[in-house]
Design a protein around this nucleic acid. Structure first.
Lengths: 156, 156
DNA sequence: GAATATAGTTAGCTATGCTAACTAATTTGT
DNA sequence: ACAAATTAGTTAGCATAGCTAACTATATTC
């Protein structure tokens, strides 16, 4: 996807520098993910399943609603994702004793192993590309990613 | 998607700092796009169509094969994306006079307008979030995005 | 001119997203 | 206490988007 010069909204409260950064950040994120995503094919599971599984692995068991919220997806969508994960024995579903409507969804050891292997491949691939940067560029990128992470945490 | 401490691959040629940056960059890109993507709903077209349309708008007319390559997608997939865009009158298909097998796919004025409006919304939304950063943080992010852009251009 | 290669389509599968309408369980309100 | 309302999750049905395999039609090559 090409990147145009940002439209000249000089009148708005948003100044042009912010628009430029926003535009290039958007474009970079799209292209980066498109490339990294191809590494995931080796796991045999789709992106939505891997992402949901990663929540379970790193944040512990969740109910379906919690998982849907964490993934910013509607319950019926998450219902199907979890069904797929359960079919592949990557998660285990048990009943909540306090509330019979709820389900407790937890990653199995197999799920944890698969996720971590896949993650290693993705990250290793991305890291191998980042190695082409100078140490200075890498540390600049590192700081920027921290800034982004904080921004995402208190997004409005 | 939570972010684990990177696995301790001290033995490999990829050092831990690179892995850390790679991991957080990956995670940030996923979450950023997930949020920005929701702005696109207002355009009434899906992400694959908008992305293909943007190639046509900013890089000019293309054949189906070229467009598929630009979007890193197989021809049958692009065939359907283009069919959808044509149905919505966002692109126009004409025949190549030199080779009757080829099709020339071009954005219509309507397509160009829709894309630019959608893009403005996305970027404006992202920019409104970036405004919460200090000027210093913004400039750090700006530099990092330039570094990333260069990295993506000569990706291996 | 026959064989081969190339451009695109069609058919059919999977996955992921949605809304609307449903079941079952819990909580609330009288 | 029990009817009404709320909450958790599922099911059905739709659209988009990805793939491979097998097809048609046109160009190219031998």
């Amino acid at each position: 996807m090409p990147r145009p010069s940002p439209s000249s909204n000089q009148h708005s409260s948003i100044n042009n520098d912010v628009l430029t950064v926003a535009d290039r950040l958007h474009s970079a994120a799209i292209h980066l993910l498109r490339r990294v995503r191809k590494q995931d094919i080796a796991t045999g599971e789709g992106p939505a399943r891997l992402s949901a599984l990663s929540v379970l692995v790193f944040a512990g068991p969740k109910t379906l609603k919690e998982l849907a919220a964490a993934e910013q997806v509607k319950p019926p969508t998450m219902s199907r994702i979890v069904a797929g994960l359960a079919r592949s024995r990557l998660v285990e579903i048990t009943e909540d004793r306090e509330d019979a409507r709820r389900m407790r969804i937890a990653a199995t050891p197999k799920g944890t192993r698969l996720l971590q292997k896949g993650r290693e491949m993705r990250i290793a691939y991305l890291a191998s590309q980042l190695e082409r940067l100078t140490p200075d560029e890498l540390s600049q990128l590192g700081e920027a990613v921290e800034i982004l992470g904080r921004l995402l945490q208190n997004w409005c």
